[in-house]
């Protein structure tokens, strides 16, 4: 089996990361935005694992465990905030959430 060259994997990670970033900036549904944030974090994880394998150094894989934990905590808090928001506003569409501006 021919191993996939590292730059290819890294480009793939970068593509996923920027898809996630675009999702955060463009999508209007907050749940989709939270999914996009997860996508960004997972692209980072994949990047770290790739570098870890390429450099033969376990530090990157160690960092991934921390990131997975933090990502889980972060989405738990985020979903909690979405539920609180939905209770008062009856919507999760960012276009309709515009009380604060100026």
């Amino acid at each position: 089996m021919i191993p996939v060259p590292v730059p290819v994997i890294l480009s793939f990670c970068a593509a996923i990361f920027f898809i996630g970033l675009a999702g955060v900036l463009i999508r209007r549904n907050i749940l989709v935005v939270i999914m996009s944030i997860e996508l960004m974090l997972n692209a980072v994880n994949l990047t770290l694992v790739t570098f870890s394998a390429a450099l033969d150094h376990p530090h990157g894989q160690m960092a991934v465990f921390f990131i997975i934990v933090v990502a889980a905590v972060e989405s738990a808090v985020g979903l909690g905030l979405v539920i609180a928001l939905f209770r008062t506003m009856r919507t999760v569409d960012t276009d309709q959430i515009q009380l604060l501006k100026g």
């Binding site: 955060v24 985020g78 905030l81 979405v82 609180a84 928001l85 008062t88 959430i97 604060l100």
Partner: peptide, 10 residues
């Protein structure tokens, strides 16, 4: 407060 929280979070 909800709106501020979700904006800051995202």
């Amino acid at each position: 407060s909800n709106e501020a929280g979700i904006k800051y979070y995202i």
